[in-house]
Design a binder for these strands. Structure first.
Lengths: 138, 138
DNA sequence: CCATTATTCCCCACTTTTCCCCACCGTGAG
DNA sequence: CTCACGGTGGGGAAAAGTGGGGAATAATGG
């Protein structure tokens, strides 16, 4: 659990920073995530995603809708000298992030959650961790 | 049964260390395990698991849920000069590990248990060791 | 177009946690 | 008895995390 200060800044945990490729130059793209969290992509991963988006069709209404939703709040930003990321206000509002945040590294990106919303998300699923694992990893 | 000191450190038993490949460089990944224990993966085994995770889809809600649960508390750490591993506080809380811990080597990884919870787990199963063996190993 | 307000960014300072190191104790083998 | 090895404890330096002032930049309103 990490704190968000008055100015909307969060410290990216050192253990996650270690895994980010050094040639991203501490640059990240923040955007709307799934289940009311925020996604934070290191710029290299974001570029890959953007490539995939380019393969979608601007003439298909569903593709259009998805692209708009994803990019609407997207914002690039660099870590400051203390390795903090500042979260634009619109994104903080979207994810209901106030003074504390849960940070999860998920392979290609980082997720930011309002801690309470994350707990609700976890408990909203009747299946246990063990049974999901059994199903997913079989 | 091993002790956990004030700083959350546990000595990895010498007999288990022997089985860990030397080129892991004493590096392990700790994470949430099943039935309220913790998993400790030697880094080489963890990398295999991570490969499998990367083959899951971030766009499938169940896959997402599993990835989050597994990685939420994951943390890499190296043995200190006395072959001890330090367990992050959030993981200790998850597994209810305080001053003592039961350590079980399980082929590809190591499990850490609150001793009392482990005893309850054993007795919670009405089937006997022998009958489970017969079923599992047939 | 200028003035006012708000936001962002850069810097410095402080607190807390982690990690590295040294020391000790007990047990079993020689 | 002594030595080696496995296990335990704790002090202190270094790193990680937090907070806030003030200049630069951008947005807002007249």
């Amino acid at each position: 659990m990490y704190s968000v200060d008055e100015k909307g800044r969060v410290n990216l945990p050192a253990k996650l920073r270690k895994y980010v490729s050094p040639d991203t130059n501490d640059t990240f793209v923040l955007t709307r995530g799934f289940e009311k969290c925020l996604f934070v992509y290191p710029i290299d991963e974001w570029n890959k995603l953007e490539e995939n988006l380019r393969n979608l069709s601007g003439y298909d209404p569903e593709h259009r809708r998805f692209i708009r939703a994803l990019l609407e709040l997207a914002s690039e930003s660099q870590l400051d000298a203390q390795s903090r990321l500042s979260i634009p206000q619109e994104l903080r509002e979207y994810a209901n992030i106030e003074s504390e945040v849960r940070i999860i590294g998920t392979l290609d990106k980082i997720e930011l959650w309002n801690p309470q919303i994350y707990d609700e998300y976890k408990t909203s699923q009747p299946e246990t961790y063990e049974s999901i694992a059994a199903k997913v990893m079989k």
